[in-house]
Amino acid sequence: MNAAFALIARDVRLAWRHPNEIATILAFFVIAASLFPFGIGPEPQILARVAIGIVWVTALLACLMSLDRLFQAEVEDGSLDLLVTAPAPLELLALAKVVAQWITTALPLIVISPIVATMLHLPADGYATLLLTLVLGTPGLSLFGGIGAALSVNARRGGALLALIVLPLTVPILIFAVAAVDAAIAGLSPRPHLFLLAGLSVFALTIAPFAMAASLRQAAE
């Protein structure tokens, strides 16, 4: 357990020391989202209708971009073997890597998401629920992404492959997150959708550590 916390602390410190990486991801998030008005026109009513979908899909893609490198540093400097042979269970260490990734990528994305939502004219009733869905849903994204990252360690075309593996698995998260915000905007209770969203993240938590550990062991062989 201490090893896991030490790993999280190390990764967060590393990210803190290299703010360029997270700045790039955040810039991607803002730029990709601001392309949509050029694609579909600036009418506030149309943008308001699709705002939540754009925010969520671009946040998902931004999250995915940072996952590409989740285990790459360990592979390149050879410390993957250390992780695999460490006395602490590999499942826990892999989970710690994902937690660190969530803190360093998803959290900043959540913080700036209201700005992007404002640019897209998200109705005022949706903001609180938007933040809640991101807080509940992004752990699931990071966990599924962690599976994809562990599977594509040392693979050819790693980045595109990661997207191909992870995107289909994230469909339920996207569906319930957007539905929750739509419900809030329509004046309905978003709670059932939020529960389902939290359930999906918990479900991801139950399978991802094992899938990641299995793939990392294969990669280290």
Binding site: N154, A155, R157, L164, P168
Partner: peptide, 16 residues
């Protein structure tokens, strides 16, 4: 979506 999962499976299988 099932089709996408098949594509991912084949891409991953061929990626090493």
């Amino acid at each position: 979506i099932l089709f996408f999962v098949y594509l991912a499976y084949m891409a991953l299988n061929n990626a090493f």
